[in-house]
Write a protein that binds this DNA or RNA. Structure first.
Length: 270
DNA sequence: AAACAGGCCTAAA
DNA sequence: TTTAGGCCTGTT
């Protein structure tokens, strides 16, 4: 298999990137590598000594994965910038290597819509079932993978068409969101150019999208860095370390990254 | 068996 | 403005 080295001196830990809660489609293989599908492409990422190798040509790295892995930003510097106290220093040291992926907007919206009130194994299972049922087949390394189905594809369906993926009451939410995006009523690309308040208002106007899911979409796909998703893990972390409350504004444009460090630190240590 | 899971929605204070 | 209960489903 053709592989290309990802040359970087910066923070880049595949394990942390894929398990810090931002994505659902990368899986660890028996050899420790990660294989997944994103942006319509399948890939494998692995370490070899101190080198980082991704399947595919240099061109594919430049055109697809460079942006996806956010390689133009200096995470070591960003990491230092969120060290506002001893706790955040510990959390960010522990999470060193995390990067915020540049994910497909529709996939992110749909995935986090499915994530509500679910555990991670089941979220992943549902997402894979959705892709296998309505995505396009991709052959990679002798195996079949599936792209994430676009909004147009799902917009043409009815909630009952999602019965096989066993996502329960979330099915109508997915279909409604697909229709909103496919029709242009919800323009995710346009929202990415605006501010958080505008994006949050537009997203939460859809059924099944509340503050938490909206924040995840805003941070992980619209890439508005000051978004600060608070889920049950974050509530525990905030309660334990900032009993008087914490204004995420202290992190400025890097609040979202600070959140990732806190979330990962909390979840991996309890 | 009953409770819970990486929320959201509605009804009711 | 905050709080309780229900919601599909799978797992413990």
């Amino acid at each position: 298999m053709v592989e290309t080295e990802i040359r970087t001196e910066d923070d880049f830990d595949p394990e942390k990137i894929f398990t810090c809660g931002q994505c659902f489609r990368w899986n660890r293989g028996p050899d420790g590598s990660f294989t997944g599908v994103a942006l319509g492409h399948a890939a494998r990422l692995r370490r070899e000594g101190d080198r980082l190798l991704i399947s595919g040509t240099r061109r594919e790295l430049e055109e697809i994965w460079h942006g996806y892995f956010d390689l133009d930003r200096d995470y070591r510097a960003l990491r230092r910038s969120v060290c506002i106290d001893d706790y955040m220093r510990a959390a960010s040291d522990f999470g060193a290597g995390i990067r915020i992926l540049n994910q497909d907007r529709w996939e992110t919206l749909c995935s986090f819509l499915l994530s509500q009130c679910n555990n991670i194994p089941r979220i992943k299972k549902i997402v894979e079932a959705l892709c296998a049922l309505y995505g396009d087949e991709i052959t990679f390394n002798g195996r079949k993978y599936f792209s994430f189905p676009g909004p147009e594809r799902l917009a043409a369906l009815e909630p009952e068409d999602l019965l096989p993926i066993r996502c329960g009451y979330r099915a109508p939410y997915v279909i409604a969101a697909a229709r909103a995006v496919a029709s242009g009523e919800l323009d995710l690309d346009a929202l990415a150019k605006g501010d958080i308040q505008t994006a949050k208002a537009a997203l939460t106007a859809l059924p099944g999208i509340g503050d938490k899911v909206a924040n995840c979409v805003i941070l992980f796909s619209l890439r508005l860095g000051s978004a600060f998703p608070v889920d049950v893990w974050m509530k525990k972390a905030l309660k334990a370390h900032y009993p008087e409350g914490l204004d995420s504004g202290v992190f400025g444009e890097n609040a979202g990254l600070a959140q990732q460090y806190m979330f990962y630190y909390q979840r991996e240590n309890s």
